[in-house]
């Protein structure tokens, strides 16, 4: 299993570091119990909390069991934070650094859940099924290699309530209804799974750049777990500084026995993609040059002049992009050589 919980930023949530640590421990144990009690249901293709339990055979059972799991997590977390609050009165540091209104909320609330607020995402698998669930932001990606090409997916449905710096949370009063999940028991398991807190997708977005980041993580993993851990610890700090400025947590599930082979496939894919993009840009540059030459002799109106100006800007950008792709190609070629040698050594 892999679990990530991200404590909310902001003064109000001044014990969210404790809240998230407790939530990870509680979730891990709850998942173990779930698996022991036989939480699965056989033969179901990938199904999500957005599907109608009436129209997908078995989903009603799975939905019921998962909601029981989520209820158990919420109840145990609330118990744990209440105990922590009782055993740990406000410290001197908290009294001096946290706004009075927030420690008053902590002191007066029946349950101090806001003080400990955090998000949660988890993935777990057995020999017969896998499932993933989430409350709050952050992105959970699966990777499958299909005909040598990476196919990324985000199988847990997104919740539009998680928007910009707003997120749903385990500390919400209706947390149980805010859990989203996916479940699959047709024995098709992802090649790898990545769970990243929102600091990462606020840096890379949730599209190709985020996928590129995880492809680079897979390349590091192929060199060995220790090296990958070292790269993550050092580089995530730098990525956070240059990107979202938020803290970042990443959890990954992968199969070490195929890591090098996947690295070679990913690099082959990136090189093919690089060639296709250069071909496309080459053609765009030729078109723009022809249009600029033609337009230069036909300027009559203000709008034609503006259009010509933008074509010239587009041409400059296309040439820069082409040059960057050429440099990237050199780097990819070097990398692929390295991983091919690594693959040969392993054989």
């Amino acid at each position: 299993m892999a679990i990530v919980s991200d404590g909310h930023g902001g003064e109000r949530y001044f014990r969210s570091d404790v809240g998230s640590k407790l939530l990870v421990e509680i979730t891990a144990e709850a998942i173990r119990q779930f698996m022991k009690l036989g939480g699965g249901y056989g033969g179901m293709r990938l199904t999500t909390s957005n599907d109608d339990p009436e129209s997908v055979p078995g989903l009603g059972v799975v939905d019921h069991k998962l909601r029981w799991l989520f209820s158990s997590i919420i109840a145990q977390w609330n118990e744990a934070i209440e105990r922590h609050a009782e055993e740990n009165p406000l410290s001197e540091w908290e009294l001096t650094h946290v706004d009075e209104k927030y420690w008053n909320e902590f002191l007066s609330a029946k349950s101090p859940e806001k003080t400990y607020g955090c998000t949660l995402m988890a993935f777990f698998r057995t020999s017969t099924y896998w499932a993933a669930f989430q409350i709050g932001d952050g992105k959970l990606l699966t990777l499958n290699m299909v005909d040598g090409e990476p196919v990324f997916a985000q199988p847990v449905p997104w919740d539009d309530k998680c928007f910009l710096n707003k997120t749903t949370s385990i500390c919400d009063s209706k947390a149980l209804d805010e859990f989203r999940y996916c479940y699959c028991s047709d024995k098709s398991f992802p090649t790898a799974v990545f769970l990243g807190s929102d600091g990462l997708d606020d840096t890379y977005g949730d599209g190709e750049l985020l996928e590129n980041f995880y492809m680079n993580v897979m390349l590091e993993i192929a060199k060995g777990k220790d090296k990958a851990m070292k790269a993550l610890v050092s580089d995530l700090t730098e990525i956070s500084k240059r990107g979202s400025k938020d803290d970042m947590s990443v959890a990954i599930i992968y199969d070490p026995s195929v890591a090098v082979d996947i690295a070679v496939q990913l690099l082959s894919y990136q090189m093919t993609r690089n060639i296709k993009r250069r071909e496309s840009l080459d053609s765009k540059i030729a078109d723009l040059e022809a249009l600029i030459e033609k337009a230069g002799s036909e300027i009559g109106s203000e709008s034609q002049r503006i259009e010509l100006e933008y074509k010239k800007k587009d041409l400059v950008k296309a040439k820069e992009a082409f040059a960057n792709l050429q440099l990237q190609w050199q780097r990819l070629r070097g990398k692929k050589g390295f991983y091919q040698r690594l693959a040969n050594t392993q054989k």
Partner: peptide, 13 residues
């Protein structure tokens, strides 16, 4: 090699 090379980090929009 590392997680940073090859890809630039975009600015937020």
């Amino acid at each position: 090699m590392g997680l940073l090379d090859n890809e630039s980090i975009p600015r937020r929009q």
